[in-house]
C-alpha cells in the first residue's frame, strides 16, 4: 500500500530521517517505536504528505507522492480522504465551535447531506463516549477527551491508512485498553507511533524501530525484537540503573 525508498528528511540542516526504506501492505498493523527526538512524528507527517522527502521517494498505492502531486485535484482529494493523521498534540486539530461541528467538518466538505452527517457523527460520538459533549466547544474538553475527539473526527471518514502519533499519551489505563481493542476492530491499515515498549506489543504485529541515529534499525516481528537486548539498548529503549538493586546492574524497559 505504501513504500518508502531511501528517504531522507532534514529540518534546516538537522537530519531527522536517514535512509529509511520499508513497505506496508494493506491491512497491516504496524508499530513505530523510537525514543524522544528519533523522528517518529516527522515520519508520520511525511507519510501524511505534510512534508516531503529531501531525498528518496514515497509511494502511495504505486503513485509517487510529491509536492507537485497535490496540484492534481483528484489526487489530493483521494489522498486526504484516505490517509488520516492523528497529531501528537490533539489540540492543533480542533478548531470548530462545537464537538458536533468538529466531527462533521470533513463530512460537510465532502458534501454529505445533513441527515447522513448526523447519523455518522452520532454513531462515532456514541462509540467514543462523546455524546454528552456534542454541544460543548472542543477546547473546553480535557486533554484525554480531546485526543479521543480528534481520533473520532478521523474515523467518521473511514480512512484507509490511519497514522497515529502517540494516541495513548493522554489516556488513562482504562481508555488505553479501550482504544487498543478499537484499533484491532478497524479494517484499515494502521501505523502507530509510541515510545512505550510494553504497549507496542498490543498495538500491532509488526514493528519498525527508529534508532537514536535516525535510521531504521529494526523491521520485523515484535516478539523477536523484545528478546534482543542488544538492539533494545541500541535503540535507547532500555536503561541500566542501580537504584533499588543491590549489587549489579539491572535493565529495564519503559
Amino acid at each position: 500500500m505504501i513504500e518508502l525508498r531511501e528517504v531522507y528528511y532534514s529540518y534546516d540542516h538537522n537530519i531527522t530521517l536517514k535512509n529509511i526504506s520499508f513497505k506496508v501492505r494493506e491491512g497491516e498493523k504496524v508499530v513505530l517505536l523510537g525514543i524522544n527526538g528519533s523522528g517518529k512524528s516527522t515520519l508520520l507527517k511525511l507519510l501524511n504528505a505534510l512534508i516531503f522527502p529531501t531525498e528518496g521517494a514515497y509511494y502511495y498505492k504505486g503513485e509517487r507522492v510529491e509536492e507537485k502531486s497535490f496540484k492534481n485535484k483528484d489526487f489530493r482529494r483521494t489522498f486526504r480522504r484516505e490517509v488520516a493523521l492523528l497529531f501528537q498534540n490533539p489540540e492543533v486539530m480542533l478548531f470548530n465551535p462545537t464537538v458536533y461541528d468538529e466531527m462533521a467538518f470533513s463530512l460537510r466538505q465532502l458534501g454529505f447531506r445533513e441527515e447522513e452527517t448526523r447519523e455518522k457523527v452520532e454513531y462515532w460520538a456514541d462509540k467514543f463516549g462523546l455524546s454528552p459533549l456534542l454541544k460543548s466547544p472542543p477546547f473546553e474538553l480535557s486533554l484525554g477527551q480531546k485526543q479521543r475527539l480528534a481520533l473520532a473526527c478521523l474515523l467518521v471518514l473511514s480512512p484507509k491508512l490511519l497514522l497515529l502519533d502517540e494516541p495513548t499519551a493522554h489516556l488513562d489505563p482504562k481508555s488505553t485498553g479501550w482504544l487498543v481493542d478499537l484499533l484491532w476492530e478497524l479494517p484499515c491499515t494502521i501505523i502507530t507511533s509510541t515510545h512505550n515498549l510494553s504497549l507496542a506489543e498490543e498495538l500491532g504485529d509488526r514493528l519498525l524501530v527508529l534508532g537514536q541515529d535516525h535510521t531504521l534499525i529494526y523491521d520485523g516481528r515484535i516478539e523477536d525484537f523484545l528478546r534482543d537486548e542488544e538492539k533494545l539498548l541500541k535503540a535507547g529503549l532500555l536503561h541500566r540503573h542501580r537504584y533499588r538493586d543491590k549489587g549489579g546492574y539491572h535493565t529495564h524497559g519503559f
Binding site: 488520516a84 493523521l85 497529531f87
Partner: peptide, 8 residues
C-alpha cells in the same frame, strides 16, 4: 499542518 491534513 493539521488544517491541511484534515481538509479534503
Amino acid at each position: 499542518q493539521a488544517l491541511r491534513s484534515r481538509s479534503i
